[in-house]
């Protein structure tokens, strides 16, 4: 279980609070207005930010003070998920060894992961020579290899068109089933939440509400959420 117990983070004139219990293997959408603290929640779990109070633990193990790279966590950011100076193979290989000293067996696994996301033969390309969708696939191949039990997604497909985006969501779905990871996905689009996650966390004014069933929440949103969503879900 991922426990976020009595988390408080204070910044000038702003406070973020969370108290959550998230089950392994769950899929959870995180929605809320810009600046409400969605990315803050992910950054705390990833270890980029340290809470001023409270603790975060995974399967009973306290994560406080553990460096981001040592946590049981993979992250997909909005952008800059790939190093532009490294080719596809090396970008994916970083998921196995951060110093890229790979054994022959590990090299095979990297090639397999690249083939799994449909990019066989693209191994020696630089990210600049790939389309946006292909770049997302490379990042997903690395997630697949890292196989961490928690996957944090900060609107990673926001820049993609609708067709590509649903393609990526399918791929993500498959990776989720293969790795059995707990997935938290920040999104602006309630349809993503409906499609992807049984449960949804609403973040508002720096406060995280506990996860609720996505369908119920969107059918009958509380007033503030209704205002944020506007007319984007009919009925």
């Amino acid at each position: 279980m991922l426990e976020c117990r009595d988390i408080v983070l204070r910044r000038e004139g702003w406070e973020f609070t969370a108290d959550l219990d998230l089950q392994p293997g769950g899929r959870i959408a995180v929605i809320g207005p810009s600046g409400a603290g969605k990315t803050t929640l992910l950054s705390l779990i990833a270890g980029f930010l340290a809470p001023d109070a409270g603790r975060i633990a995974w399967q009973g193990r306290d994560l406080t003070g553990i460096a981001p790279g040592k946590r049981p966590v993979s992250v997909l950011f909005q952008d800059q998920n790939l190093f532009p100076h490294l080719d596809v193979t090396r970008n994916v290989g970083l998921g196995l060894r951060p110093d890229l000293r790979l054994s022959p067996d590990q090299r095979d696994r990297v090639a397999q992961a690249i083939a799994d996301v449909g990019l066989g033969g693209f191994g020696d390309r630089l990210p600049a020579n790939l389309s946006g969708g292909q770049q997302s696939r490379v990042a997903l191949a690395r997630v697949l290899l890292r196989a961490r039990p928690i996957l944090l997604l900060d609107e990673p497909f926001a820049a993609l068109g609708p067709a590509l985006k649903s393609e990526m969501m399918e791929l993500l779905d498959r990776i989720g089933r293969d790795t059995g990871a707990l997935m938290l996905m920040v999104t602006h689009d309630p349809r993503d939440a409906l499609e992807f996650a049984r449960q949804t966390i609403v973040v508002q004014d720096g406060h995280c509400q506990p996860p609720q069933a996505t369908g119920d929440l969107l059918r009958d949103p509380p007033p503030a959420l209704r205002e944020y969503l506007g007319g984007s879900i009919g009925g």
């Binding site: 790279g69 190093f83 951060p98 110093d99 890229l100």
Partner: peptide, 20 residues
């Protein structure tokens, strides 16, 4: 641009110097 990505992939010390 890449500090968080490198941190999340546990790239530190010599590996970070060499690869990033």
């Amino acid at each position: 641009d890449y500090g968080r990505l490198a941190a999340s992939l546990d790239m530190t010390g010599i590996a970070r110097l060499r690869l990033l």
